[in-house]
Design a protein around this nucleic acid. Structure first.
Ligand SMILES: [Mn+2]
Ligand SMILES: [Mn+2]
Ligand SMILES: [Mn+2]
Ligand SMILES: [Mn+2]
Lengths: 223, 223
DNA sequence: TTTAACTTTTGGGCAAACCTAATGATCATT
DNA sequence: AATGATCATTAGGTTTGCCCAAAAGTTAAA
């Protein structure tokens, strides 16, 4: 009894998944509405429907939480989204700031074989162009030892940029402008206690200053 | 004033385009309904709407005909469909009988750059895996000198299979079974006047018999 | 603890695509 | 020219996914 699932429903599941990962508390109706740019009244209706379909557990007290069925659907959509982004960047020469909107469309294409073959063509990548982990075909996420650059307390060490926590075009184009991209080496030269802004050196170029807001969105690993 | 166009509307335009190429007379409301597996009443409503949007000229006497705007939209969708099919076969190792349904989904993805880059990745192909011509970015169709094998009157000559006129899984799998595929050499050994069935030799294998129904759907060129 | 602010839900509506049943037109035969 | 058959259209409904305005419920400050 394979129930059909619409684009809209897939987008709700994906949204609930990502909100549940970042907020770890109750998922507010309103936060879904804001993320999807729709009216809270619409969210209420859809959450009831997803609850009916056993894709989420929902009540007004605890809010919404994905069931295991709902979670694996969400992970499947996220897998497709990230594989397509990787395809666009690695095979079609897109820049990392141009791919999200197209992947929003491609992630809803229905074909298991397609996604399997795409994965193979790309060499079974573990991370997408923004450093986001790609769930494998069983929904398993690869381990990442990423942490935000802003959490570093002392200058002097060199890190590697392995991801970004903000995927907006504005942020990605800012990174393009200051010429940081994924896998670049970042050496922290100074940390200003006052506003936690930083002076960093990218590769072996001249040092630049970044705000703590930027540092918050740069995900790095040791070395 | 870029008016949005829905998946459904795109499918109607594509259908009207292909019916106008094969039937060359008035396009019957009913033929659209049959091709799309929907009710004639629904077709009436949609044709009125497409007429409003200036994508077709429509009235009950002459039926529906694409406007130039409608035709270039139809060609764009067909271009995407055939490029995606080519991608699936050439880059993702799909068999030619598995790609149509997926291309039906992919053809609606909206991104000019995507289709431009895909075209480039594939080496600007002129024909898709079924031998169908791929419109270029200006909607120009490549010339094809294909004709149906059934139109041949005398045995003795060898032709090349450059396309099929029937894209159903059933037909394509039949071709797989008798092991004919695109670009194969076909030599006509015998033509039976009674039912116009043929005995043909594919490459240099043992001869096989095919019905005229099959011969009608094999598109060949000289040599 | 009361009030104000915020969040969620209800109720009433709308647009896109579809449906069925019934009516109107047109087309072939007699 | 009449008459069935076929095709196209209208009228009335459904479902999905969205909206707004108003009511109800919850939380937090005064
Ligand atoms: Mn993305
Ligand atoms: Mn990404
Ligand atoms: Mn096709
Ligand atoms: Mn094709």
């Amino acid at each position: 009894m394979e129930q059909a699932i619409s684009f809209t429903e897939e987008n709700y599941l994906k949204t609930i998944y990502s909100l549940s990962k970042q907020n770890k508390g109750k998922i507010a109706n309103l936060s879904i509405a804001e993320k999807l740019h729709i009216n809270p009244a619409t969210v209420t209706e859809m959450l009831k429907k997803l609850n009916e379909k056993n894709l989420i557990d929902y009540n007004r007290i605890d809010g919404a939480a994905l069931t295991s069925q709902g979670e694996s659907l969400a992970l499947k959509v996220i897998r497709k989204h990230r594989l397509w982004e990787t395809f666009l960047v690695n095979k079609l020469s897109f820049n990392w700031d141009e791919v999200h909107e197209i992947a929003e469309q491609l992630e809803h294409i229905q074909s298991d074989k397609l996604i399997r073959q795409l994965d193979k063509l790309l060499g079974f990548p573990k991370f997408d162009p923004h450093g986001d982990p790609i769930p494998d075909k069983n929904g398993q996420l690869p381990q990442s030892q990423a942490f935000p650059l802003v959490s570093v307390e002392e200058p002097g060490t060199t890190y590697k940029l392995i991801g970004v926590a903000n995927h907006t075009t504005a942020f990605l184009q800012y990174l393009d402008k200051i010429k940081i991209t994924i896998n670049d080496k970042i050496e922290i030269k100074e940390i200003h206690e006052f506003d936690h802004s930083m002076v960093i050196r990218i590769g072996n170029r001249t040092a630049v200053m970044i705000s703590s807001e930027v540092a918050k969105n740069l995900l790095v690993s040791a070395q």
